[in-house]
Design a protein around this nucleic acid. Structure first.
Lengths: 204, 204
DNA sequence: ATCTCATTGTACTTATAGGTACATGTGAAG
DNA sequence: CTTCACATGTACCTATAAGTACAATGAGAT
């Protein structure tokens, strides 16, 4: 029973990976099952054998993303141990965007902007992903605070939300302008703001 | 010749307005010409009489937005005369989002996130819109600077970019979480950061 | 060798997207 | 009161989206 489901699982994962890439590249609405099927070199039979529907596929893709974030196997590392790590967190995403020639945004933001009131399930999947990311970031700020390295006015949860919204806005503007300039500006300003919450930081 | 084109111009504008609303609500890919036609109570004949194609319509919609921003007739006022105006600028967008029950994001950001490499014209339209917005915001910061009210480290262009990316990220997260909390957090943090560039501001 | 069930392949189906073709209406200028 | 250009209405049309139906294959259990 060891390899009983191995072949299928591989096919399934191949479809998910291809879909994730296409969703990132062109969004979910612009990506048809047929396109995923062709790019993954599978067939209709396989597609609908492994996924109820297109929505089911989107859900599975997001699950895989979520697991990668949780387990730390994602391209971006969300476990921060220092301010240097935080900088790396920001810049890792900029670099990823650059590697696609500034033609793509954040994989989650891209999908998130497409959700309407009929995509409640997907919206919740995304909400959960961002909640997990937020808590990972917050953990860092909370640790800093517990060591007395943050000023009293600092609110770790707000700081985490700020990080996420900042990088989302930055990447969206980067995609629209096809330039990394705005992204880098935003990241630097955001970091400057966050560092302002460190004890003993000279303003700006 | 006064009313010669009046009727048609009205129909045209009606289509544009309906389309703008649908694009804002559900994005451009999820909005078909048929839907626009029905919601605007027109017909195929009229639609394709006034617009070459769906892409043409999107372009026209963005032109109308652009003109509204330039002329100051948009729902959000981009001409800032004071820091209070800047706050209002941020919060006006939050209020607008709230008025839709947090189900929508920024009209431009929503469309911007949908553009792929095949939508170069639309992408440029959006780029232009954001450039105009940026310059309007920058004008305020430059005026402040010229009156010696900003610290030397302040960069007016970067500050303007920061404003735009911040509000974009905020609204996107607001739409995904369906909550105004993140949005308000982001706006307050962003304002705090910007105010840090004022001369004589106590840090944070 | 066969049975069984996961897996895969192919053909068909319905609805919608996006657009054309063409016919008709209408109102102001001549 | 006709005419011509703008304006509107209706009927197509082709491609694609999303999904179903069902047949065929193939590897481990018996």
């Amino acid at each position: 029973m060891r390899t009983r489901f191995a072949r299928g699982a591989e096919t399934r994962l191949r479809i998910i990976r291809v879909a994730a890439d296409l969703f990132h590249k062109q969004g979910v609405r612009a990506t048809s099952p047929d396109e995923v099927i062709e790019a993954s070199r599978t067939g209709k039979g396989q597609f609908y054998h492994y996924f109820r529907s297109k929505e089911g596929l989107i859900h599975e893709v997001l699950q895989v993303h979520l697991e990668a974030i949780k387990s730390g196997t994602a391209l971006v590392k969300y476990e921060l141990g220092s301010w240097m790590d935080l900088e790396r967190w920001f810049f890792a995403q900029v670099e990823l965007q650059k590697s696609f020639g500034m033609t793509r945004g954040c994989p989650f933001g891209t999908i998130g902007n497409e959700v309407t009131e009929n995509d409640e399930l997907i919206r919740q999947d995304l909400s959960l992903i961002f909640e997990v990311v937020k808590s990972k970031l917050a953990v860092f700020f909370i640790r800093e605070e517990s060591q007395g390295r943050l000023v009293r006015a600092a609110d770790e949860n707000r700081m985490a939300d700020f990080c996420i919204a900042a990088i989302q806005g930055a990447m969206l503007m980067g995609k629209i302008t096809r330039s990394s300039q705005v992204v880098e500006t935003m990241v630097r300003e955001a970091l400057a703001h966050l560092k302002g919450y460190r004890t003993g930081s000279k303003k700006a």
